[in-house]
């Protein structure tokens, strides 16, 4: 399978070559690709991730891995900032499930997803692992890309509905001021 056009709008940011010596690259750039696909995996509903994964394994065969850390559900304390940009405070917690796996070639993948779905966290971990290997272009085409497109489509629809409620208020001149 030919590598996909990696500059396409699949929401996965700059390309990161696994194993390349990228220590001179600033951290935010170096990790941008991985951050993007982890974000897509976390924000997509578990059913959709499972469906894309199924399609991928139907074509590529089952993928071998071992669980380094079995799926575990806990809480993340969500922080806000006073006034939106001031000092941090604790707003409340959100449930989160995490999982770590090691692929047959030794690559480690991590899944961190809001909610309590063990399946979601495990799938996210496996895909995160594979995205660091030579399988990345095929995963991008069959899993990450379609998931990112679905999220973007959903956002577009919401944005259009919201835009239809844009309002312009007019100030009435009071009688005594006329």
């Amino acid at each position: 399978m030919a590598p996909t056009d990696q500059t396409s709008n699949s929401g996965d940011g700059p390309v990161v070559r696994h194993g390349a010596d990228d220590s001179a690259v600033p951290a935010d750039v170096r990790h941008a690709g991985r951050q993007a696909w982890m974000s897509v995996l976390a924000r997509s509903p578990v059913d959709r991730v499972a469906q894309r994964w199924q399609a991928f394994t139907d074509q590529e065969g089952a993928q071998e891995y071992v669980r380094l850390r079995a799926p575990e559900t806990g809480l993340v304390m969500v922080r806000g900032r006073a006034g939106g940009d001031g000092a941090a405070f604790n707003l409340g917690e959100v449930t989160m499930t995490r999982c770590s796996v090691r692929l047959a070639d030794g690559t480690v993948g991590h899944g961190y997803v809001a909610g309590r779905s063990h399946r979601h966290a495990e799938l996210a971990a496996v895909v995160d692992g594979l995205m660091q290997t030579l399988a990345a272009p095929r995963l991008r085409e069959q899993v990450i890309g379609p998931l990112a497109d679905a999220l973007a489509g959903q956002r577009r629809v919401e944005a259009e509905k919201t835009a239809a409620t844009r309002v312009d208020f007019f100030t009435m001149v009071r009688e005594q001021e006329q």
Partner: peptide, 19 residues
Amino acid sequence: LPRLAESQPLDTARMTIRR
């Protein structure tokens, strides 16, 4: 449930606005 992490402070300036 165990506490697994603390989040980075939310950036509400980057909110996907619905209202």
